[in-house]
Design a protein around this nucleic acid. Structure first.
Lengths: 334, 334
DNA sequence: TTGAAAGCGGTACCAC
DNA sequence: GTGGTACCGCTTTCAA
């Protein structure tokens, strides 16, 4: 920078002013500086800048699995929103491990993030308290536990109602529910709404129809097998395990079982039958989460913005899989 | 940090030494400092540290589309490798736009990256020259143009040979080739090998069998339609357009057309028929790219490491789609 | 084994 | 409209 200053015959401060497009610089001076910058191929050290300003203009997004289509979509949108605000994006995958999640979050926090988006698998976020007053945090897809904070998640209750009602409307009475784990608040919320809807329809929910798979592919297979082994077989299945939808869809297509999946996924409309799914709108979710983050950042230190648990509506994408086995003849492909 | 120093009754330098696990600190002093750190909940400002050290310990990965399974897989692995080396990861998506690619790369470079991985869509990387001596760059999936540099890509020639030969072995003579654009070196390399293999088998390649889709879904549909309209229809198709495999697979399943796809994808084994694909091993590719980056970083300034164009072998995953229409009866699902 | 002071490359405050 | 200078929080150099 001092090279530029010398070349243009001005002070470093003026170079700084020009680079940041500040007022109070005469056009001639500006031109001279711009030219020197261009000639010398100067690139500002944004690390130094961020350091001095105490803010890095970087967003952090932490997810369990970057490859999962739902989270990939979120990462994509976060990056895009960040770019629109002239910011960059740190990603970190945690592999569903709370320990690793904590380590990586702490590593991120050391870098003076402008804000952190966290799709957590942990059940205790107390360790984040330390940064609560310095770095805005927005929880994604899950609510904070052991700490107060903003969050953005799908409207699970409404989604479960939609899905269950949809199957009822298609004449199903024996509806099974496949979730990951009841410890996940999302899952238990959905299960509760599912039971409510059945109850309201005068159907007593067969407790054996609600199975939890855990978080492994083997667990999913085991759960489906356990349904298959039931004397009184269900005719429809709600998959509440978005991470395993592809596996479930593949396994269920053999069965005479209607299927509706939480979380839409890339080939849902290419499978046979095509899979009816509840689109959770991950892009919208991410967009709103970033918006919230920036809003809170603006209010830093000033008026204390109350914490909010915001919700994103899900959209049912009707395809074929909810109709079986009502329709007897083989379904035609779309 | 000076707070810690005061609390422990030492100098900031000693705090620094302790934090970095340097030698030459007496155990008692170390304990005292550690305790002060724990009590005051001190977190080091890694931004300041990176600034001072002139290296941020951050890797950058730039891809056309974060949601694409191939690139999502690469981002995932880069992040994982980075974490293993105590580094963080910047991601940036470019949306296939060379302009945006350049803007985002420049934004990244301003942050004193330890290294940049670039899956470029641009045909001129001359603008990177500026950083050639300061920041290691490894090109991914494409070779550098207008500049020298390291690169890691799939072995396209070998892959195309494998794929084409595989279809020949299954009795196909009329094999079509669907690529994105001949301007993509990857595509033209594959096409050349495809022609070579056919030639070696004594088959003259019908020029109408080679179609380019461009980069849009509409282009893909158009390309497939143009094949469909041919008087002398092909019996098999090679999809060299990894980004569109899912669309192509969905569209082709209606046709009586064998299919082998470059780039394996998540539901390839759930479609009907299951899709034979060439796994490009994106994780391996990313891993080796990071390794190369770190290797070059270590040699910074010292011995000039010669640039290398490394290659990752692809693995054919045999499924059902290459057999049609040889098999007449409907295929049973796996 | 420990500490004092310089400096990384920018920005902010204030004087001119 | 412009420049001088302190300073962000850490590491480095060198002296004690």
């Amino acid at each position: 920078m001092s090279d530029i200053a010398r070349a243009a015959g001005v002070s470093v401060k003026t170079v700084s002013r020009v680079h940041n497009g500040e007022e109070n610089v005469s056009p001639e001076t500006r031109d001279r500086v711009m030219q020197a910058i261009a000639e010398l191929g100067y690139v500002r050290n944004d690390l130094a800048r961020a350091f001095r300003m105490g803010d890095s203009s970087v967003l952090g997004i932490v997810v369990p699995d970057i490859e999962d289509p739902f989270f990939a979509s979120i990462v994509h949108q976060v990056d895009q929103s960040a770019a629109e605000h002239g910011m960059l994006t740190f990603v970190a995958g945690t592999g569903d491990d709370p320990e690793q999640e904590r380590r990586r979050v702490e590593a991120l926090m050391g870098r003076q993030l402008s804000g952190l988006l966290l799709a957590s698998v942990s059940h205790d976020h107390g360790y984040l308290q330390r940064w609560a007053n310095s770095t805005p945090i927005v929880f994604i897809d899950r609510r904070p536990e052991g700490i107060e904070g903003d969050s953005l998640a799908s409207d699970d209750a409404a989604g479960a109602i939609t899905v269950t009602q949809h199957l009822l409307d298609h004449g199903h009475h024996k509806i099974a529910f496949l979730g990951d784990s009841l410890e996940v608040s999302t899952t238990s919320a959905r299960l509760a709404s599912y039971r409510e809807v059945l109850g309201a329809a005068g159907i007593e929910a067969n407790p054996e129809y609600a199975v939890m798979s855990g978080f492994t592919p083997e667990g999913v297979t085991r759960a489906i097998d356990s349904l298959r082994a039931l004397p009184d077989q269900p005719t429809a299945l709600i998959s509440s395990n978005g991470r395993a939808n592809q596996i479930i869809a593949a396994q269920v297509s053999d069965l005479q079982l209607a299927l509706v999946a939480f979380s839409d996924f890339p080939l849902a409309d290419a499978l046979s039958p095509t899979i009816t799914a509840l689109d959770q709108q991950p892009r919208l979710l991410a967009q709103q989460a970033v918006a919230r983050l920036l809003e809170r950042q603006r209010h830093t230190g000033g008026t204390a913005l109350p914490f909010e648990a915001q919700t994103v509506p899900s959209v049912l994408v009707e395809r074929q899989s909810c109709q079986r086995p009502i329709v007897d003849q083989p379904l035609t492909r779309h």
